[in-house]
């Protein structure tokens, strides 16, 4: 019953997020600040993880090809498919649920605990529009992060493969170009946009409606991470079935 209530409250929050908009001159500043915090601030960790995971995917693929009949360009092909279809859009989103999600929940939750949200509401400001909407707009730039993750994942695979002696540069590049389907990119970015919405709203919901003190802020961040990850995984399944199935 409580879960149903929370789902209902979540959708009401989304509706309220678009009501009574904040003055554009103020909103503009908030959006730019959130782009800095949520998008630019995540580039480093996303780049680091993508590069090394791409490398590991390439090495693992290479080590598991023992049959001499399987062409070496499969390593590039498998790395590209793994990174573009799943690693970059889905698993980077789960990493972002930890990094960006916990930041959103803890910052909004702390504002709740210290009555800053009450202060906004007393002034007649729609606190949901003021706090959540800029995060939602900022995360519309999330596909750029994923594009970088895709590039660095494949590039990491190339470096690991070529300089680790697992395949030649030509074989890897040939594999990366093999049977390329443009729709896979569309599919990956569509997923990314849906996950961006989830990343902005679920942690905000847990922060905005939290009750209690500092300890509860920590608990809310953990809960937000768990639910954001669960929703991303479930949506990933349905989107994949719908778009590729």
């Amino acid at each position: 019953m409580k879960y149903l209530q929370n789902i209902g409250a979540y959708f009401i929050m989304i509706k309220d997020m678009f009501r009574r908009p904040t003055k554009w001159s103020v909103m503009k500043t908030l959006i730019l600040k959130d782009i800095d915090d949520l998008i630019l601030g995540s580039l480093g960790i996303v780049a680091f993880i993508s590069f090394f995971v791409g490398g590991v995917v390439a090495i693992q693929t290479s080590l598991n090809i023992s049959n001499p009949l399987i062409p070496k360009n499969l390593i590039g092909f498998a790395t590209r498919q793994s990174v573009i279809l799943e690693f970059a859009p889905t698993f980077v989103s789960i990493i972002m649920a930890g990094k960006v999600g916990s930041f959103i929940t803890s910052s909004i939750g702390t504002m709740r605990v210290t009555e800053q949200i009450d202060a906004l509401e007393v002034m007649g400001i729609n606190a949901l529009n003021y706090l959540v909407f800029p995060k939602f707009i900022a995360l519309l730039f999330y596909p750029f992060v994923i594009a970088i993750a895709m590039f660095l994942g494949v590039f990491g695979g190339y470096i690991a493969c070529v300089y680790g002696g697992y395949s030649s540069s030509a074989d890897f590049i040939d594999g990366v170009q093999l049977d390329f389907i443009e729709f896979h990119i569309v599919y990956a970015f569509l997923k990314t946009l849906v996950f961006a919405f989830v990343l902005a709203t679920i942690p905000s919901f847990h922060g905005f409606f939290m009750k209690g003190g500092a300890l509860e802020v920590g608990k809310a961040s953990t809960t937000a991470f768990v639910w954001t990850s669960v929703v991303i995984i479930i949506l990933n399944y349905f989107l994949t079935s719908l778009l590729l199935g």
């Binding site: 600040k33 702390t110 210290t114 009555e115 800053q116 009450d118 202060a119 007393v122 002034m123 007649g124």
Partner: peptide, 21 residues
Amino acid sequence: EKRDLRSKMGMVFQGSALFDS
């Protein structure tokens, strides 16, 4: 009208509720 009225209200909270940022 409620929004207008609230813009005419000032509130001093127990913990001050100043914006950290």
